[in-house]
Design a protein around this nucleic acid. Structure first.
Length: 332
DNA sequence: CAGCCGTGGCA
DNA sequence: TTGCCAAGGCT
């Protein structure tokens, strides 16, 4: 146990305080936060030990987790893993790190090259934001990925989760790391329900803070371990409770694994949406090293109004650069 | 803050 | 087959 617990007085903030400051305050976990209701400090300590021991035995050997992986590798992985499965990220992450081993290397490229190298990971605006973040790191941070949550949060494409993840995984800092996996694990083990709320709540942050180990290195381990548990065992569909190290302590399990009550969880529609059209348009542009004539883009979608709206949106987002004479290319 | 932003695998 | 889901962020 750490003996240098210090008080972290809640800063008084006006309603107009900056988003980054407010988020940083939220994620800077209070070492004195109480355990969640119904859990004794001893139970929390048991939870830590069981989950971290399980992690030591079952963690996947992922490139961005290896001892020689730098903060840049971690940061690239976190961008790519935003809403994209690990299996699809692995090859692209390897390509990126080999091609752009430092943030400045990526920053020296055109944004279009980042979008092209993003391939089919999806949500290509992430490639643009990562490219912009690399530029900010190169120019404002001496080429080194910053280690503080606030500085990370100021980078494009870095939100509360990614800032905490990079600070924790790359720098061993103590932060609550609330991704979809961790939120689901806590919803079940502590909350006794099958699924967390749609959006992260203050109650979830309090729970996470109450569970966060006081010791910095243990906290970072805990963050990775709870995330891995959610990814491999405590999955959204058909969880493997028989392989769960904390099944005996799980509130959801102890309650008989009741199915999700509440309103149905909203899914993402896709077929026929602008997103699908944008995807097809960008696929054509990624595949061509030369600027693409309008006719080639027109061929991907039958409906002209939606097609034009999608293309306009891509241009608006900076993913496509219009040239003269109705010719388009990825941005230079 | 609810809706938008890609893509593909799997139950 | 179709819906659900995957290490979110931004407006």
């Amino acid at each position: 146990m750490s003996t240098d617990l210090h008080d972290a007085p809640e800063p008084i903030r006006s309603a107009t305080s900056a988003r980054s400051a407010a988020s940083a305050a939220r994620s800077a976990a209070d070492p004195a936060a109480p355990p969640p209701p119904g859990l004794t400090p001893a139970a929390v300590a048991t939870l830590h030990e069981l989950v971290i021991d399980w992690f030591d035995a079952h963690a996947r050997d992922l490139p961005w987790r290896r001892p020689d992986a730098g903060a840049w590798s971690v940061m690239v992985s976190e961008f790519m893993l935003q809403q994209t499965p690990v299996a699809r990220v692995l090859p692209v992450h390897a390509e990126w790190l080999a091609r752009w081993p430092r943030p400045a290397d990526l920053a020296a490229e055109s944004p279009g090259e980042a979008v092209r190298a993003w391939g089919r990971l999806g949500y290509p605006r992430r490639a643009l934001r990562l490219h912009a973040a690399a530029g900010a790191i190169a120019h404002r941070h001496g080429g080194e990925v910053p280690g503080s949550h606030a500085e990370l949060l100021a980078l494009p494409g870095v939100g509360e989760y990614t800032a905490a993840a990079v600070a924790s995984f790359a720098y061993g800092r103590r932060h609550i790391v609330l991704d979809t996996n961790v939120r689901r694990v806590f919803a079940r083990v502590v909350g006794g329900v099958e699924h967390p709320p749609n959006a992260t709540t203050a109650a979830e942050r309090r729970t996470a803070e109450g569970l966060l180990p006081a010791d910095e290195a243990t906290a970072a381990r805990w963050a990775a371990a709870t995330m891995e548990l959610g990814a491999l065992v405590c999955t959204a569909r058909s969880p493997q409770c028989g392989r769960c190290p904390v099944a005996a302590l799980c509130a959801w399990r102890l309650a008989g694994s009741p199915p999700h009550a509440g309103p149905p969880r909203r899914g993402q529609s896709y077929a026929g949406t602008d997103r699908q059209v944008r995807g097809r348009l960008l696929a054509v542009l990624r595949a061509s090293r030369e600027p693409v004539p309008q006719a080639a883009l027109d061929a991907v979608w039958h409906e002209p109004v939606q097609r034009a709206r999608a293309l306009d949106g891509l241009v608006e987002d900076g993913l496509v650069e219009p040239l003269a004479d109705g010719v388009y290319r990825l941005p230079h």
